[in-house]
Design a protein around this nucleic acid. Sequence first.
DNA 1: TGGTCATCAG
DNA 2: TTCACACGGTCAC
DNA 3: GACCGTGTGTCTCTGATGACCAGC
Length: 540
Amino acid sequence: MTDATVTNPLPPLYYLDNFYSILDTVSSRYPDLLTRTESEWIAAFKALAQPAQLLLVRMLSRKGNWFREDKFNYPEIPSIDAAINELATSSLVSVTSSPTLDVALAIHTKPELLQLFDSLPLKASAKKPEIVDEIMRHAGSCPVLPYRCIEVSHDVLPVFLLLYFGNSRQNLSEFVVSDLGIYHYETVPLNIKDRLFNERSQIDAWLALSNLADEYWETVESKQRAKVRELVCRLPEPFDWPPLAYKRNRLVNAVARDLERLGDIDAAEFLFVTSALPPAKERLARMALSQNDVEKAAGYVADMLASPYNEEEKEIAERLARQLSKKGAIDAPAKTKNVFEEECVALTLTQRVEMISADYYREQGWQVWYCENLVLNALFGLAFWDIIFSPISGAFLNPFQRSPKDMYLPEFIESREDVIQSRLADIRENTAFVLDTYEQKYGLANDWVYWDYVDKTLISAALNTLSNDQLIACFERILFDRKNNRSGHPDLFMTKDGKCRFVEIKGPGDKLQHHQIRWLNFFVEQGIDARVLYVSQPQD
DNA sequence: TGGTCATCAG
DNA sequence: TTCACACGGTCAC
DNA sequence: GACCGTGTGTCTCTGATGACCAGC
Ligand SMILES: [Mn+2]
């Protein structure tokens, strides 16, 4: 574990400091995009005394809008009572002792509800949802409570987080895990003029889409896939702005795939045709094919062949074309022949087949690592470290990034074309700097380098056994499609006598995946020893 | 009352 | 708002 | 052989606490 055991103490009011960092950044980066409500909220917040600020940030960083005065336990806030009063006076919260019934039901535990509504014939053994139903049926309202309930008036945190981080995945705990020393981030100069959003409508659409995606995942998690039908009409129309278009099409593809599984082929098609993101065209072709509409399927396949989104979509189209050509609908490119070796062996499987196979090669004198994608990705992340973290405008929006915002977008290459080319040329001459980078950057978060899983001996073994040209070829392949070519690497990497070998392990019943085949063929074309090992159980 | 899960804190 | 991979099944050829 | 759905570990922290439930 990289330093994870060492945790630094946090300053006493760390969460208020962190919240202020966000407010300050957001209001200086996006003064023109904040709504009137948000600007006034910030002004009102800053005018509060510190205890009231503390309590409000505590509430904002918790789930839900409703809280109970009697349940607060914040020793750092001198008077909860005074803080609540001040927040209520500023209209930042509203306060009541008689909340509506549904709120009361949500903020009380089951034992509390049994006591609160003891005049109703409730069964203590019933589950909470049943008790809630029962109370809803028989009680008109909630009795007046001996404590106050507080509702946060404006749920401003999601907007501020989105504007600060530039995504809807990171939150206030980024500050904490970083300050505790659990994560260490590369320092990249941030420019306050760099903005992700340029219109308010982009922010609102983003938040709406995030909420919709949340809802979608909740329905999927609750195993009620049929309910996704209710989401369909709330999906937004396609966007021109790429970040929103991508986010939208991912959700559309997921929903459409569920509709397809539910047998709602027409509805699925209706959605897929609005999505430019794979696998939309593939699904359209397959749906047409399964309905025996060969013409239509051929149309989508031809479309994919003419302008494939990436290597994967191109291969899928070629396979589909071969299926269609049997029906005489289209002429298909021939199947490419595999050029890697296939080795077969019978081994007794006492643990994971990859481990057993690693021992099998160790007995032959190899030094073996079961590292899958880790080794090539780490080499790439190290060799291109300063390019990945170069302060390109708009690429770094917050101090907690493991990669630039455009790492997996076409712009990554376009904006860095020259430095990438000159780095590749450098690597042709020497690769020793990669190990230096390993030492200098050890522990710093990088999307490509998982320090706890890739040790220095592995990195130097790879550098010593792959030729510079082979390394360049691997990097070019990763650079070509950063998103897809960071996976599919063989299970085992091994070295012996200054040579290396990649081996993908296939146990009984396991088959090569398409991207694994692409990598194996690529290695062999580059003169790198790569093969698949088929392991079977010995017959007794 | 012990196990599981969600939530919160640092 | 998850991803990569393995596994086991079906279907058609 | 091709495709599909599902399971598994996980590589976005770790431990404490409380709510809930089932079983005794
Ligand atoms: Mn394998």
